[in-house]
Computed example of a mutant assay.
Amino acid sequence: MVMREWWVQVGLLAVPLLVAYLHIPPPQLSPALHSWKSSGKFFTYKGLRIFYQDSVGVVGSPEIVVLLRGFPTSSYDWYKIWEGLTLRFHRVIALDFLGFGFSDKPRPHHYSIFKQASINRRVNLLSHDYGDIVAQELLYRFKQNGSGIFPETHRPLLLQKLLKDGGKLSPILTRLMNFFVFPRGLTPVFGRYTRPSESELWDMWAGIRNNDGNLVIDSLLQYINQRKKFRRRWVGPLASVTIPIHFIYGPLDPVNPYPEFLELYRKTLPRSTVSILDDHISHYPQLEDPMGFLNAYMGFINSF
């Protein structure tokens, strides 16, 4: 009887604690992140609001660059190279894909690369991670109309595997995810000496938590399965496309491991040029080495 009462007491205590935990509000935006959001705009796509940044840069230049960012963060990933890009292009545009950052995050919803690509238009593209696959779909459409790139070399993290294939377990994991778990999943894809500060991690987490974005992560991760299914559609155009392509690579990247990824890339895209950054740079080169990344991109843009 005493044991039974003990379990009842634990249950009565645990339930309100769990309810309180599941209703922890998202963190407040830092001044920098708040400024990024307040200076941005929204457009509506099929009844859903998509957040974007659009800065006017060089007067008289006809060129536009659109930045497509990676999983699981937001357009704010580009903030370290934003000013540098405005010195070269007339317009610099970055958007939060559906389900990311400050854009709408409907649930339940079938998130797909095809829908994300339909939001974009034809311009200079600078992409990263998840944005690479969207760019590949745009290349496919370009050819038809006149995070990794290759699924076989992509190395998703353990948490990504659990969330994308967890079935009924995935919604539980997304609800239990918190800021103290988040860095453990993200920092391993940064270089040892270039990992984000705690304040930068909070900015990333705030973008994810905005509009309960943590609850759609498992749905967004279906892009990994989509990439395997549509490999021919998305890798094929890369091998035969005639427009200039440049790849900026952090050789410490565990998601696209060296040297097998780079060997396959050069074999598949022999006409593409490649910039290899310093040995300690990993999966987020635009954040880990913004100057090196910007110099590599400008060297490519100015070469034709």
Score class of each variant (00 low, 15 high):
residue 109 H to A: 03
residue 46 K to E: 09
residue 101 G to N: 07
residue 78 W to K: 11
residue 59 V to E: 11
residue 116 Q to S: 07
residue 135 A to M: 14
residue 249 Y to I: 04
residue 148 G to H: 10
residue 256 N to Q: 09
residue 286 Q to C: 05
residue 263 E to K: 01
residue 107 R to D: 14
residue 17 L to M: 08
residue 301 I to C: 04
residue 229 K to P: 06
residue 227 R to Q: 01
residue 100 F to C: 07
residue 11 G to R: 07
residue 37 K to E: 15
residue 277 L to F: 05
residue 80 K to W: 11
residue 264 L to Q: 10
residue 47 G to A: 14
residue 262 L to Q: 01
residue 130 Y to L: 10
residue 153 T to H: 12
residue 240 S to P: 01
residue 203 D to N: 05
residue 173 L to H: 05
residue 271 R to I: 03
residue 275 S to L: 06
residue 242 T to G: 06
residue 82 W to Y: 14
residue 267 K to F: 02
residue 301 I to T: 03
residue 177 M to V: 05
residue 164 K to S: 06
residue 191 G to K: 02
residue 84 G to S: 10
residue 55 S to H: 01
residue 4 R to E: 15
residue 139 L to Y: 04
residue 56 V to E: 14
residue 188 P to E: 07
residue 300 F to Q: 07
residue 198 E to T: 01
residue 291 M to G: 03
residue 240 S to E: 09
residue 207 G to L: 00
residue 68 L to C: 09
residue 26 P to A: 10
residue 289 D to T: 00
residue 165 D to F: 10
residue 263 E to Q: 04
residue 253 D to C: 07
residue 298 M to R: 04
residue 265 Y to W: 11
residue 60 G to S: 09
residue 223 Y to P: 06
residue 8 V to G: 10
residue 185 G to S: 06
residue 107 R to G: 03
residue 288 E to M: 13
residue 148 G to W: 05
residue 77 D to W: 05
residue 36 W to N: 13
residue 33 L to Q: 14
residue 20 A to K: 03
residue 144 Q to C: 12
residue 121 R to V: 02
residue 59 V to I: 11
residue 52 Y to R: 07
residue 77 D to Y: 07
residue 159 L to E: 11
residue 257 P to I: 02
residue 280 H to I: 06
residue 248 I to F: 01
residue 213 G to L: 08
residue 243 I to G: 08
residue 248 I to E: 15
residue 194 T to Y: 00
residue 268 T to F: 03
residue 231 R to V: 00
residue 247 F to V: 14
residue 43 F to L: 15
residue 163 L to T: 06
residue 185 G to E: 15
residue 43 F to R: 12
residue 23 H to I: 02
residue 66 V to Q: 09
residue 124 N to H: 03
residue 79 Y to K: 15
residue 297 Y to D: 00
residue 137 E to T: 00
residue 13 L to G: 12
residue 294 L to D: 15
residue 34 H to N: 15
residue 251 P to T: 04
residue 205 W to Y: 12
residue 273 T to C: 10
residue 66 V to W: 04
residue 69 R to K: 08
residue 222 Q to V: 10
residue 38 S to W: 11
residue 244 P to Q: 03
residue 300 F to N: 02
residue 15 V to I: 13
residue 83 E to M: 11
residue 186 L to V: 13
residue 225 N to C: 04
residue 84 G to P: 13
residue 173 L to S: 12
residue 149 I to L: 15
residue 238 L to T: 00
residue 1 M to G: 15
residue 197 S to K: 01
residue 229 K to Y: 14
residue 228 K to V: 10
residue 175 R to I: 01
residue 175 R to P: 01
residue 297 Y to P: 02
residue 29 L to E: 09
residue 198 E to C: 00
residue 288 E to A: 09
residue 28 Q to S: 04
residue 290 P to K: 02
residue 276 I to T: 14
residue 276 I to A: 06
residue 76 Y to M: 11
residue 69 R to V: 09
residue 190 F to E: 08
residue 163 L to D: 13
residue 207 G to D: 01
residue 151 P to V: 08
residue 261 F to P: 04
residue 177 M to E: 00
residue 273 T to H: 10
residue 235 V to E: 13
residue 113 I to H: 10
residue 193 Y to F: 02
residue 7 W to A: 10
